[in-house]
């Protein structure tokens, strides 16, 4: 697994919001199931002293870390303040920030990611579902029941499409080491290159599924950087140019980043490219 195991202690920023509360409960249900530490504290400015599903709430990240030895944070803070929250976490000593929030202004994302880097804080997201290492830990919003423990890594720009692929793998009897959604925005903390480098160092990961989308060329950059066997799938072959397909990052600009040319470039590197999610398990078996 990558980014952490069952010993990872987590805080949730904006734990008193609707999504923060709901997913704190799910993350801790998962932690109990696998014997992990889970969410040990929450942060919500002005709401210190409360409890959310038995988890104590603090006004600031610094206060939370004074009482708990957490190293990771899951950020559910609304878009306008999310960048600031990532910087707060990094400044207080959080080592891994998983940013679920979507619609963060891109300049805030650039600043937060650059600032976090200065404090040696790894940022996953924004606009991502987080990560799940089956049997170990869950940070974020992935539906855990779809996943099974195994030796295939999954890294994806998408949220729900990732669940689809995980479901296909599990049904085919192929378990996962870690599933990580790196986010659908043009600017994200961990890229395919970063996640693949971690998979490469992980003794449990034997192959990786890379799930990309239209926009940019980071899939290709990632695939080129690794020596692990990789299977890819690129969403958006039927997407029209200049239309933003949901994600801010999923847009074909100036004729660049379209899915068909990505598929062509990946195929030219002799990388198997699935034409639909249900083909992925078969292709993974071939490379394992």
């Amino acid at each position: 697994m990558i980014y952490g195991d069952r010993n990872l202690s987590v805080i949730v920023q904006n734990i008193t919001g609707r999504q923060g509360m709901f997913h704190t409960e799910l993350m801790n249900a998962y932690a109990r199931e696998v014997g992990g530490r889970g969410v040990v504290a929450g942060v919500a400015p002005g709401k210190g002293g409360r409890e959310v599903h038995g988890v104590p709430v603090y006004n600031t990240v610094r206060e939370a870390l004074r009482e708990h030895d957490a190293t990771a944070s899951v950020v559910f803070v609304p878009a306008a303040a999310a960048g600031d929250s990532v910087m707060e976490a990094a400044h207080a000593g959080i080592e891994l920030a998983v940013v679920i929030t979507e619609h963060i202004p891109i300049h805030d994302a650039m600043k937060a990611i650059a600032y976090a880097k200065l404090h040696d804080c790894t940022v996953i997201g924004p606009n991502c579902p987080g990560l799940l290492s089956p049997g170990e830990c869950k940070l974020g919003i992935m539906p855990a029941h779809l996943a099974r423990r195994g030796n295939v890594g999954v890294v994806s720009r998408s949220g729900t499409l990732t669940y689809e692929v995980v479901d296909e793998l599990t049904r085919a009897g192929i378990g996962q080491s870690t599933v990580v959604g790196i986010g659908g925005d043009p600017v994200i903390g961990q890229t395919f290159v970063d996640a693949l480098a971690r998979f490469e160092e992980d003794p449990h990961t034997k192959a990786v599924v890379v799930i990309g989308e239209v926009g940019g060329n980071l899939e290709e950059e990632g695939v080129r950087s690794t020596s692990l066997p990789v299977v890819t799938y690129i969403a958006g072959v039927s997407a029209p140019p200049e239309k933003r397909m949901g994600h801010a990052g999923a847009i074909i600009e100036g004729g660049e980043g379209d899915a068909r040319s990505k598929v062509r470039r990946l195929s030219a590197l002799n990388i198997p490219v699935a034409s639909r999610p249900s083909e992925i398990p078969g292709l993974i078996r071939e490379v394992l």
Binding site: S156, A235, S238
Partner: peptide
């Protein structure tokens, strides 16, 4: 989710159908 919705459109094209729209209801 954008990815799953795009993937659904691609699958319709794969089966030689034609999608009327892309609608991602969001998170």
């Amino acid at each position: 989710g954008a990815g799953l919705t795009m993937s659904t459109l691609d699958l319709i094209e794969f089966y030689n159908g034609r999608a009327a729209n892309f609608l991602d209801v969001g998170g």
